[in-house]
Design a protein around this nucleic acid. Structure first.
Lengths: 150, 150
DNA sequence: TCAAAAGATGTATTTATAATACCCCTATTA
DNA sequence: TAATAGGGGTATTATAAATACATCTTTTGA
């Protein structure tokens, strides 16, 4: 039932970027410092997000990253689907289940999972950083204290 | 998003018992043979199910196990809740998330999880072994071939 | 033109925990 | 009292997630 830390971290990064002024770049270093996750780890997550187009990563001096599209266009379900390796709630083949054929439980579990995902599918990143929200306020504060040399 | 094998196996055992004639006992040995899971492993799962009252385990010679109540009274949500160690989709405390306070994502994830669980909550074991169902047929066949010396 | 800043990527290691195995115990009944 | 059946603590193994290491390429301005 648990999502991986990768998915968790991906959301933290995306929310942080969404809280930024549009087109302002954040660096890996900044995200690393703000969330206290190792550079290497953040890199892996950002690269995955970049390949999927959720973030734009700009190389070179004065490079950095920003959202790849409007926060309102980044669907939460898509983020989960991207980051999670195994989405299936059960694996009836490995080891093979003797009663898998025609198993109603299988169907119910996949329906349940679809309800989980489709609930997230109703929201986008912009729902997480509404103006006047606590999150937006916190992000701005974190960004400022990083800029001020932590 | 994945459930543990323990939960998976617990369901296999329960479905098997539900497919049995009421009050007929199945042994650990039988379940072990039918599902090709080790005795020790089956024991652990059955013990957990027994402690929760989902199965009655009867010790001693000619002992065995059967459902602890009517299949219609064994709710699928309760089985998942019993078997899964970590139900929370994310852990915002470990490592602590700097933007956890007032985080909307948290709320959405828990809502999504609740939809998952409540879907299962609408069904019981008896929904999985309806008369004339393929599952019931398969279980009877497995039971017979075990009785016939595998 | 090269040094500094920034992201890219493949591989290896560590850690957590799920899964499994081992061992010996207790209960029941012919 | 022996055979059959479940009980339960502890140890080990396997798997995958999490993390670390090393080395790369890209960009830009002095």
């Amino acid at each position: 039932m648990k999502l991986t830390k990768h998915t968790d971290y991906a959301f933290r990064v995306l929310i942080y970027l969404a809280g930024y002024e549009k087109d302002k770049l954040a660096t890996i270093k900044e995200v690393t410092a703000v969330f206290d996750i190792s550079r290497d780890h953040v890199m892996k997550i950002v690269q995955k997000l970049a390949k999927a187009g959720f973030v734009d990563a700009i190389r070179g001096k004065f490079g950095g990253m920003k959202l790849g599209s409007n926060a309102a266009d980044i669907n939460l379900r898509d983020v989960v689907t991207l980051m999670e390796v195994t989405l299936a709630p059960v694996n009836c083949e490995e080891p093979p289940c003797r009663i898998a054929q025609g198993c109603v439980l299988q169907t119910l579990l996949f329906e349940a999972q679809e309800l989980f995902l489709s609930h997230l599918g109703q929201y986008t990143l912009s729902d997480l950083i509404k103006p006047e929200s606590e999150t937006l306020y916190i992000i701005k504060a974190l960004g400022e204290s990083f800029a001020a040399g932590e």
